[in-house]
Design a protein around this nucleic acid. Sequence first.
DNA 1: AATGAATGAGCGTTCATTCAT
DNA 2: GATGAATGAACGCTCATTCAT
Lengths: 228, 228, 228, 228
Amino acid sequence: MSSTPDAAVLADALSTPRPARSAEVGQAPRTDRGRRTRRRLLDAAAVVFARDGFLDTKITDIAAEAKVSSGTFYNYFETKEAIFTAVIQQTIERLFLAASVPPETDRSPLVRIETATRNYLLAYREHAGLLAILEQVATFNADFREMRREIRQTFRNRTSRGIARMQQQGIVDASLPAQCTAEALTSMVSNFCYVSLVLGEDYDHEEAVRTLTTLWARGIGLDLAGGR
Amino acid sequence: MSSTPDAAVLADALSTPRPARSAEVGQAPRTDRGRRTRRRLLDAAAVVFARDGFLDTKITDIAAEAKVSSGTFYNYFETKEAIFTAVIQQTIERLFLAASVPPETDRSPLVRIETATRNYLLAYREHAGLLAILEQVATFNADFREMRREIRQTFRNRTSRGIARMQQQGIVDASLPAQCTAEALTSMVSNFCYVSLVLGEDYDHEEAVRTLTTLWARGIGLDLAGGR
Amino acid sequence: MSSTPDAAVLADALSTPRPARSAEVGQAPRTDRGRRTRRRLLDAAAVVFARDGFLDTKITDIAAEAKVSSGTFYNYFETKEAIFTAVIQQTIERLFLAASVPPETDRSPLVRIETATRNYLLAYREHAGLLAILEQVATFNADFREMRREIRQTFRNRTSRGIARMQQQGIVDASLPAQCTAEALTSMVSNFCYVSLVLGEDYDHEEAVRTLTTLWARGIGLDLAGGR
Amino acid sequence: MSSTPDAAVLADALSTPRPARSAEVGQAPRTDRGRRTRRRLLDAAAVVFARDGFLDTKITDIAAEAKVSSGTFYNYFETKEAIFTAVIQQTIERLFLAASVPPETDRSPLVRIETATRNYLLAYREHAGLLAILEQVATFNADFREMRREIRQTFRNRTSRGIARMQQQGIVDASLPAQCTAEALTSMVSNFCYVSLVLGEDYDHEEAVRTLTTLWARGIGLDLAGGR
DNA sequence: AATGAATGAGCGTTCATTCAT
DNA sequence: GATGAATGAACGCTCATTCAT
């Protein structure tokens, strides 16, 4: 359950840009100076998007934040959507990396659930600013809605496989439909993050981890007696 | 736990207190004809908002759908936000009504949880179009974000009170923090609705009700043995 | 050989605008005020296009000339191309009208040729400003190139039919291919107009009429002896 | 009536006298490598202009076609207009060469007219792509409009001289004004080329030559009886 | 009450040209 | 000589809102 495969799947899914207007745009810059400028733009965009939201972000704001002219922006990205895609892509990669449960983790199911939950919360907190904006963009842009769905499915599928495995091992309720259950639990954790970290309902991190872990584990019928 | 108090709280919270541009606008129309026009605009707005989203909805589209001129619109509503508020307000009222659990419902906790879940799913399905748009608007408009939070809190508080009551009755895990738990379970149900009904992950209604109910009830430590 | 049918053909060919962005735009204005504004815009556009050319004409220039705001322009026309089409359309109608040879004209072929030539020169002179711009636009816009071709074909076909008729009457060289001949003669007259009236090679009107008529009539083998 | 003098006149008229921005630009390159780069740019420009038109041609397109960087372009040409001038200049030289009637041609007037016509058609066909673009540029740029006029005048004057000579010889109608007649006949041939080769009205080459020659010769009153 | 015409600020994008290496 | 990155003025178009009947 390492994060690498998931991240790879996502990277593939997200890296389908439309044909560049000119042969140049969208290509990797050829000089160091170019690479530095591109990076400055990406960093600036991450800041501005997280601060102002997608809709209120003007290309000129990004350019200004990166200290380049607006024309320069277009040497590197075709549209606001394009740079947002690039920004989100790296965010997602980091999210997957941070939210993964290293294979060497304690084999105890409860510990694994707790680790997954804690890592997810931490990773979400780390990237809450941009994830909130992806949520925004997904509400009016079909491409990004699809991207959001794919991220979601990646987590849900991982969960679904974990549940199915535990069901085969006979340690959780085998009568639960794995996918629907995974969907519900993914909703619980991810939306809890959204509500607390984006909408601002305040909860103590450890209390949240403990509560979510308990609801999750007990919900699927895992015997907590031996686990704690 | 009837819906009326909740709805009343909400209605208060959602009322728009800003001073009307002219003495007339925003007031209840005096004549029958005026009342009819206002209603036509509201109905048209519900249709157009749900169809095109808030951002892509133009005042002229609403006016056209209502078969009035764009000038007429401003005789009844000050801004696009104002009519959206009005539309959402009535949606929320209906949502609360539909999602409530009548007091006369079987006193069995499991049945009450299942009923609440089923009603929520049905109510959400009924209003998914506009709820999705509220979700959209909440991502870039602070007023509507607050509105969304209040709706959410209404459901969460109801849940929180229910859990506290069951904890006092000694039928569920008393060590769980009621509010945090309620937040998590509200996330589970509401976001499941969003993912399945708005983003389009398809699940059988009854399977969803059963799964969510099981996760919920077992999660808080309710003994299912006697319940089913 | 009245102009009405030709004009009708053209009007048809030119009146196929793409679907209007909104239901409103492109429709006939509903009030007198609206009709007046639309007319003012058309008149202003004719002036500005003729003065500055298509490329150098800015929407704001047209709006300013018509003394309306730039937004108002878009209440009546979707694009610069759209208003240019409308302007050209009326120009073409007038051109056909002015360049036609009334049926009651002397039946003598030579007189008819001379009348047609004179009327064409006069009509071209009348509308040289805008015809020059159509020529310009036709060089980079396929739609207008097609429009220009159709106008051209209308004149050529009229000429072609006239030649064929005279060939049947045995009064001109029957061995000439009617269409190719008509193309060449249309070129001679229309391009002479372009060179003298647009590019500014100066010729006396009557000398030009006489010369073109002579070349035309003698070229197709008409016996001039009896004609003059 | 060889083409060389005409071409020389033209070359003078087309030279661009404005002061170069830097001492270097516009001067003949010093090194072989420089000469090769300049040639590559010229060839590339001819291709791109003919393919995309003047307006849609971007400096970067020319540079890309020539496989040099856009910066390099400005080492050789000051502006897009400057390289277009150079491209057209060489086109014109070739056009004059191809369209000329060698002095050793049969002294029969009819044969000379036919040869001139055929050569013009062939030469136009050869360079139709760029001539069409010159036509385009002439519609919005005064310098190129003047250039186009000069080319035109070169052909017209040649024709005018030919007609005057034949009038002196008493073999054509002496009452025709030579210049106006030449203008009309030049229009006939050149615009026939434009319509058929650029706008795409299709005619058989030989039929066109025959028809144009007949109209031309008979139009000026040349006795065809002995000529054929 | 209703109409529909008028307004104008605001922003994304292009591309010829210059500059630093 | 060659490179490719940087520049920024310029303009079309939208649409919420106001205004005159």
